[in-house]
Computed example of a mutant assay.
Amino acid sequence: MWKALSKTSRSTAAGLLLLVSLSALPAISYGAETMGPDRTVTITMTEYMKLRQNARQLSKVQKQEAEKWNLLSASQKQQAETLNQQREEIENSQKEMAETRQSLERANSLLKKANESLENQKKSYQKLTEETESVLQRKNHEIVVAKRQRDTWAIGAGLVGVLGIFLAVSD
């Protein structure tokens, strides 16, 4: 188990183990007082210094871990806020996209109607053009016929006039 842990993790684990064992001392002491005479534990100065150094290291590690925890907590809060902002932006974008889609559908519908109307107008224009050409052809024909009739009457009148003059002169 100790081989799998890194050097820092081993020292942290050892410090935590020491802290847990030290936290049990007041309970042992309390239990000893209620059970009988006081007991005293004696350790050497080097053991005490080692214990004290381990406690200081453990305290430093705890402070570092607390700072890391605070940084992680702040980072997590910031990420949560960013995530909420992004969610709101996505929702707003989706709403805008839906509105744009509806607007495009309406525009497409209007464009189809305009195309149908344009086709109808084109057919009406072609029909009107055909009718106009037909009317113009009839009118041109009527004009040609009227000119012929006029010319015929003019020639007839001229002949009648010449005949009248000729008859008047021959009498």
Rank of each mutant, 00 (worst) to 15 (best):
L25Y: 13
L25V: 14
A27D: 04
I28F: 10
S29P: 02
Y30R: 09
G31R: 07
A32R: 13
A32I: 09
E33A: 12
T34W: 14
T34D: 09
M35R: 08
M35K: 10
G36E: 08
P37S: 15
P37E: 04
R39W: 01
R39D: 05
R39A: 07
R39P: 03
T40A: 13
V41Y: 03
V41I: 11
V41P: 03
T42N: 09
I43K: 11
I43C: 14
I43Y: 08
T44K: 14
T44V: 15
T44M: 13
T44L: 14
M45A: 15
T46R: 14
T46G: 13
T46Q: 13
E47T: 12
E47V: 12
K50N: 08
K50I: 01
K50P: 08
L51Y: 04
R52H: 06
Q53N: 15
Q53T: 13
N54D: 14
N54V: 05
R56L: 04
Q57G: 06
Q57W: 06
Q57C: 04
Q57M: 10
L58Y: 01
S59E: 09
S59L: 03
S59N: 05
S59H: 08
V61Q: 00
Q62A: 04
Q62P: 02
K63G: 01
Q64F: 00
Q64T: 00
E65A: 01
A66W: 00
E67L: 03
K68D: 07
W69K: 01
L71I: 15
L72N: 12
L72W: 05
L72Y: 11
S73Q: 10
A74I: 14
S75K: 12
Q76L: 14
K77A: 15
